[in-house]
């Protein structure tokens, strides 16, 4: 545990072990709130905040919590942070808070958070846990926002609608729209659209991974000496 590979932790969180695309955790909010990019981004950032704080806390108290009671303790910690985040969103992002509704308190049931607390934070020092929480959170946020953008674009022909809910009044002009002639594919907004969209995202990730490993193989073949060294 002497030297911690922060780069590997970060890459794991953002890509190799992406909680939404690889671990398939936290699918309930993923399906429910990603009907626009802003909703996805908002919930993703809230989850990231909770994940960061809970990872740091769990890691900080890991020596004092007995193994038998660790899960209830983790849940209490996570629930406290979710409550704080919920109150803060109510205060500063009230409209977004109204839109996301029940899914903010439901962050507490997001498997990603308890999963990272159990699998990583309770076994690693505070610094590494913080990086892990941030990377895992941002990885999920990226998927939430991308899926939200896809569904929003296909479903209602807009992008970043309601961005002012998250970024303030400067963002009012950010909305991109295909115009009123676009009828919209209602299915993309409905739950089946979320499942299909997630399927396509996972497929895309697998294709990219395959390409990367193929080019890595080629590179290894062309430089056998270096490969042998590695």
């Amino acid at each position: 545990m002497a030297d911690i590979d922060y780069k590997r932790i970060t890459l794991d969180g953002l890509w190799h072990n992406n909680q939404a695309l690889v671990a398939l955790l936290g699918l309930c909010p993923l399906m429910a709130v990603t009907n626009t990019a802003v909703n996805g981004l908002g919930l993703g950032l809230a989850t990231t905040a909770v994940l960061l704080m809970s990872n740091v806390t769990v890691s900080g108290i890991r020596h004092w919590v007995r193994a038998e009671v660790r899960l209830p303790v983790f849940v209490m910690i996570i629930a406290s942070f979710v409550t704080s985040v919920e109150l803060m969103m109510n205060a500063w992002f009230h409209e977004l808070y109204r839109i996301l509704g029940i899914f903010i308190p439901l962050i507490v049931t997001n498997c990603t958070i308890i999963g990272r607390a159990e699998a990583f934070a309770s076994r690693n020092p505070v610094g590494a846990s913080a990086v892990d929480g941030l990377a895992m959170g941002l990885g999920s946020t990226a998927v939430l926002a991308t899926l939200g953008a896809m569904r929003e674009f296909i479903g209602q022909g807009t992008l970043l609608a309601g961005a002012h809910l998250l970024f303030g009044d400067v963002a009012r002009g950010w909305e991109f729209s295909l115009g009123d002639n676009y009828q919209g594919l209602l299915l993309a907004i409905l739950p089946p659209g979320a499942f299909m969209g997630l399927g396509f995202l996972i497929a895309t990730k697998n294709i990219l991974n395959k390409r990367a490993s193929r080019s890595a193989q080629k590179a290894a073949q062309s430089m056998p000496a270096q490969a042998a060294e590695a």
């Binding site: 009828q183 919209g184 594919l185 209602l186 299915l187 409905l190």
Partner: peptide
């Protein structure tokens, strides 16, 4: 079903 749901 896709068409019926999307363009009722």
């Amino acid at each position: 079903a896709l068409l019926l749901i999307s363009f009722p």
